[in-house]
């Protein structure tokens, strides 16, 4: 009987750690994006590379990522090499250069490599507001039907990529 009681703290702690484990990774600040399950909002933006107008119909027909970035954003510096690596392995990424200047963005891509299928210039940030982003970098996963299935806030790296990759398939 007494022995049984001595195990009680251990058992209570085990239960607590299960609860804590389940809760890790859920962002307590997370506001579920209302875009999940919807198609990408209407937009018409200028492409960085060729100054052509790009709209929804030009989006890829296969699963892809929409990645919001900017040359002003420190975390994007860290994220960029990983995106280049992903693009090499065949992941389609549409970049949105958010609240940024064209010349700086060109410099950046020349210097660090260009992982993007094409880069849209969202200088005023309207598209960002439509997508409901809260900062950069921020990445959306869109499936082959053009429906947003996942949103990732913050940089993509080797640790969190498996989760995102899961949604991409």
């Amino acid at each position: 009987m007494r022995k049984f009681f001595l195990f009680f703290p251990f058992v209570a702690f085990s239960i607590l750690s299960v609860v804590l484990y389940v809760q890790i990774g859920k962002d307590a600040n997370y506001m579920p994006s209302a875009l999940i399950g919807q198609t990408v909002p209407e937009f018409t933006l200028v492409s960085l590379t060729d100054d052509e107008l790009v709209s929804n119909k030009d989006l890829p027909n296969q699963p892809y990522l929409i990645n919001f970035w900017g040359t002003w954003c420190a975390a994007c510096h860290v994220e960029h090499p990983y995106l280049v690596q992903l693009a090499r392995s065949g992941v389609v990424i549409v970049g949105v250069d958010y609240k940024d200047k064209k010349s700086l963005a060109e410099q950046w891509l020349n210097k660090k490599g260009d992982p993007y299928r094409y880069v849209l210039m969202d200088e005023l940030g309207h598209f960002g507001v439509d997508m409901g982003i809260t900062g950069a970098p921020e990445t959306f996963v869109v499936d082959s039907q053009g429906v947003v299935v996942y949103r990732h806030q913050g940089e993509i790296n080797a640790q969190n990529w498996p989760v995102i990759e899961g949604y991409l398939q």
């Binding site: 900017g70 002003w72 420190a74 975390a75 609240k99 809260t134 900062g135 950069a136 970098p137 806030q153």
Partner: peptide, 17 residues
């Protein structure tokens, strides 16, 4: 109001510049 520290708001860029 919550402030997220993980990544900077766009305006920070201008300040940095």
């Amino acid at each position: 109001a919550k402030h997220d520290e993980e990544y900077m708001a766009p305006e920070v860029s201008d300040a940095l510049k």
